[in-house]
């Protein structure tokens, strides 16, 4: 029973980890939590659904197209909107991402209506694997493996490629990066694109267990935020770990304490963490310079 809960927790935690990771990448670069991230992912999932449903593309090509689409949306937003604002304050940045969120939310609803659709992976979803006392669904295995793979690839990308190093440089100090000849704006655009892709992967993994509607990613987004806050928002490693922790806590809470209020756990965790350790569990404290 207990190990079953842990496995389920890790499975949903994998999604939160991806969402949190996508969030942290942008947060580190531009100090703004991207509230549009959920909608960007939802839109891309809808695009994939559209391709599959119209029998325009087979499943895997449709997913690839959706990821490409997500990348374009991210880059485009940075390029057409964020770059236009003159020295925006954090408040203004937040409002801009909220604007994008509303915009995409409306577009999805307008194009595909509010009635729920289903988007499923081309596998038998109720097929399971028995591991001793624990039963794992194939979908869960795919989710866990995919997210681990993403994390690993991202780690290699950030540490072993020139582009990844440049992204980290911009995240640490954009002025210094600019002085050293890095094209900060271009890197920023690519960062937004990359983040959108990661968010969309989470969306595609989440869509089979949820009705596909414009609000698809609202819940995962809030959880992703919670995971990010848990991990300190500035630490990709912390965000991933925060995602797993949140997934496990949430499942245990749902089983042993109250199924009713399971979804409020994330919020309670945010408040608790922010209250006792505002910088998150895995990041160092930052002091403002006068």
């Amino acid at each position: 029973m207990f190990s079953q809960l842990i496995i389920n927790g890790i499975s949903s935690g994998s999604l939160y980890a991806l969402v949190a990771l996508a969030m942290v990448i942008i947060y580190k670069a531009s100090e703004v939590p991207n509230f549009a991230q959920g909608e960007m992912a939802t839109l891309s999932v809808f695009v994939a659904w559209h391709f599959v449903n119209a029998q325009f593309l087979p499943f895997y090509q449709a997913v690839a197209a959706a990821l490409l689409f997500a990348f374009a949306v991210g880059v485009l937003f940075e390029f057409t909107v964020l770059r236009r604002a003159e020295k925006p304050s954090i408040l203004e940045l937040i409002v801009m991402t909220l604007g994008l969120q509303m915009f995409i939310y409306g577009i999805i609803g307008w194009k595909w209506g509010a009635e729920q659709k289903t988007f499923s992976l081309p596998i038998a979803e109720d097929s399971v694997v028995q591991l001793g006392p624990v039963v794992i669904g194939w979908l869960n295995i795919i989710t866990i493996v995919t997210s681990l793979l993403c994390v690993l690839l991202l780690y290699l990308f950030f540490t072993h490629t020139k582009l990844g190093t440049a992204m980290r440089a911009v995240q640490m100090n954009s002025t210094a990066a600019r002085i050293n000849g890095i094209r900060v704006h271009r890197i920023m655009s690519l960062t937004w694109g990359l983040s959108a892709v990661i968010g969309t992967i989470a969306g595609i993994l989440f869509a089979p267990v949820s009705p596909l509607d414009p609000q698809l990613m609202w819940d995962p987004l809030l959880k992703g935020f919670a995971a990010g806050v848990l991990g300190g928002m500035t630490s990709p490693f912390g965000a991933v770990l925060g995602g797993y922790i949140l997934g496990i806590i949430e499942n245990l809470f749902g089983a042993y304490i109250s199924l009713e209020f399971k979804s409020v756990v994330a919020f309670a965790l945010i408040v608790l963490v922010l209250w006792f350790k505002p910088s998150g569990l895995f990041s160092r404290h930052y002091e403002r310079k006068v």
Partner: peptide
């Protein structure tokens, strides 16, 4: 049938335009 969602589209654009 999704036309009522035009409201969100417009407000999203308004928010962005005003901030920028």
């Amino acid at each position: 049938s999704g036309l009522p969602n035009f409201r969100s589209v417009l407000f999203g654009i308004l928010l962005i335009l005003f901030v920028v």
